[in-house]
Simulated scan of single mutants.
Amino acid sequence: MKTMTTSLLAAAVLMASGAAASADEVELWRLDCGQIEVRNLDVFSDTFKYSGKTRTLTDSCYLIRHDKDYMLWDAGLPTALIGAKADASATFAPALAEDLPTQLAKIGVKPEQIGRLGVSHNHFDHVGQAATFPGATLMIGAADFAQFKADPLPFAVDPNLIKPWLDGIAKVDPISGDRDVFDDGSVVILSTPGHTPGETSLLVRLAKTGPVLLSGDVVHFEEQFANRGVPTFNFDRADSLASMERLTGIAESLNAILVVQHDASDINKLPAFPKSAK
């Protein structure tokens, strides 16, 4: 199992030796994977910080091009939500305007070109359109993949959304610890458990933009890093806090752009689609 230190040291050696992918071979797009209106934000803090408040979360996904290889990071909300009427009585009201294949077509990428589907964790708003890419290897925390087979199922976990991989039709790469995706330090899946047992985040190194950290659901709003806000539905509180500390520590050490994927204002740190970060 690789540790973060091992991954970064290996990446530094590879880059110094010229073995890493040249910087202009890595490109990052931010995709729109829906939004979630939260009508009672209280569940997002176990210290009652958001009692009585509401907020709309963005649901962002990301496409990474590594030379000629494409990796999708998170698969957003299910396409069944397109045109669906929201439940007026529900605490969470998800909505989706456009699916991933439609967006990818705008930059000339076909679903079958996605070779890797990395998901930060197993909740329905991050694997909703996964089955659109059955040719991709599913890269997911091993503990999170195991939960798809649990009885009873944990909060927000729907096995039907990853049926090709559960049925053995598509390839699964269950991850423990960190994973250097292309073995050159340019794209590294980071172990950041707490929200779920196998939660991960993503480090992408870009030539012009510099390092970018995609948070997964380590936090849902930027201010939670400072106020240590832990949702009541998180798997482990101590791990949640440790993962917050890890991400902010990496961001400081690498001078990286830290993007909170559910924060509607935070995602603007990256260009709006169809523009990309390079």
Rank of each mutant, 00 (worst) to 15 (best):
P271A: 04
D32C: 05
S176N: 13
S240A: 13
A131P: 01
D173N: 15
G249P: 08
A93F: 02
Q129S: 07
L31E: 09
L104S: 14
T3S: 15
S276E: 02
I140L: 13
T209C: 05
R246N: 04
S186I: 00
E199W: 05
A16E: 11
I189P: 11
P94M: 02
R246H: 09
T209P: 08
F233E: 00
V212E: 07
M139G: 01
S243K: 00
H123N: 05
D67I: 03
F182L: 02
A86L: 12
D151E: 15
F92S: 07
A142P: 10
K53C: 01
A146G: 07
G83K: 12
K163D: 14
R237P: 03
A251D: 01
S22Y: 00
D46S: 14
G115E: 13
V38D: 09
L14V: 00
A75G: 02
C33R: 09
A16K: 15
D180C: 09
F225W: 09
K278L: 11
H123P: 06
A142H: 14
W73N: 08
T47K: 10
A95K: 15
P231F: 03
L202I: 07
G141Q: 02
K85V: 06
L28Q: 09
D178N: 14
Q103M: 08
D32T: 06
D173A: 15
S60H: 05
F225V: 07
L241C: 11
K68R: 14
H66V: 02
